[in-house]
């Protein structure tokens, strides 16, 4: 029984990290139709930003979260403005362009900071462990879980309860009609992309104490996060949450029964089959056409 609960908790922990990374990707893909292969590099930038703030400015991780969000969002804004907005009518080419941008970011970090592993300290207040259903769990993992849910809530509010979110939803439904009502689609797209990038940066900063920070750390995340988005369904934030935790539990569970490699292979195969038979994802919100 204890083992079972432990397994569930591990799954939740994996799931919350997946959700953190996938949230930004989901917004960008769902609203702009852009598969952002540079997303992993935004995660990496966030982690490096945490390291820089800590090493050079002496800021703790929690204190530097907001500046990190802003810095990475600024990167995202620039990239949308000067690269992606030129590719409006070529969705397949955005994969290539974002991948190229990702390579550039990775190399730029490698050249400027070096490719050694870097480490970010756990916030001292969260370095102990607490009891969850009688199982000792690191407080930081509980904190990650809470933060990922909170960020999801904030994003949902932003999309559904603010003027910017309303404009974005209008553009998703029909860009030209929205534009004729005076909505500046270019600006909203740039803001959306910046927001998604900022979220990725936050995710990177938040996972940095758990994993070592390196220039190519993002590559693994982007694949997993993408699977979350595909499974959850485009344009469905709630689906993203559900699929993040499903995938977290699944990979935790299969890894426990078999091994990590088999877990990864089975999850990938399951997603291939899913795309074939339900390309709209498991939990699709019906968009009024």
């Amino acid at each position: 029984m204890d083992q079972f609960i432990e397994q569930i908790v591990t799954g939740l922990s994996i799931g919350s990290i997946l959700l953190l990374v996938a949230l930004g990707l989901s917004i960008i893909y769902g609203s702009m139709g852009i598969i952002n292969l540079a997303h992993g590099e935004f995660v990496m930038l966030g982690a490096y930003a945490a390291w820089v703030f800590h090493t050079y400015l002496g800021l703790g991780l929690l204190a530097s979260l907001i500046p990190i969000f802003l810095v990475v969002a600024a990167f995202g804004w620039v990239i949308e403005r000067y690269v992606l907005s030129l590719l409006n009518n070529r969705p397949l080419d955005t994969i290539l362009a974002t991948w190229g941008v990702g390579i550039m970011l990775q190399q730029a970090v490698r050249l400027s900071v070096g490719s050694e592993l870097r480490y970010v300290q756990l916030p001292p207040a969260l370095s102990d462990s607490m009891d969850v259903f009688g199982i000792p769990v690191s407080s930081y993992r509980v904190f990650l879980f809470v933060v990922s849910i909170a960020l999801f809530g904030a994003t949902w509010l932003l999309m559904n309860r603010t003027p910017v979110g309303m404009k974005l939803r209008a553009i998703i439904q029909d860009r030209s009609v929205a534009a004729s009502f005076g909505i500046n689609a270019k600006r909203v797209y740039a803001l959306t992309f910046a927001y998604g990038a900022g979220l990725a940066g936050l995710a990177g900063a938040l996972v940095s104490p758990l994993k070592s920070v390196s220039p190519d750390m993002g590559t693994g995340y982007v694949v997993d996060a993408f699977m979350v988005v595909v499974l959850g369904g485009v344009q469905s934030l709630a689906g993203t949450v559900a699929s993040a935790f499903i995938l977290g539990e699944l990979s935790g569970g299969i890894a426990f029964l078999q091994n990590d490699t088999v877990a990864k292979a089975i999850v990938l195969l399951a997603i291939v089959v899913l795309i074939r038979f339900r390309p709209e994802g498991l939990f699709t919100a019906r968009v009024r056409a």
Partner: peptide, 26 residues
Amino acid sequence: RGRVTGVYVSIITLATMVVINLVIID
């Protein structure tokens, strides 16, 4: 046959390759 197109073809081909790669390493 399932009329999968565009981006989804890219994802499926990439994922399939990764699976075969994992199996070979495993």
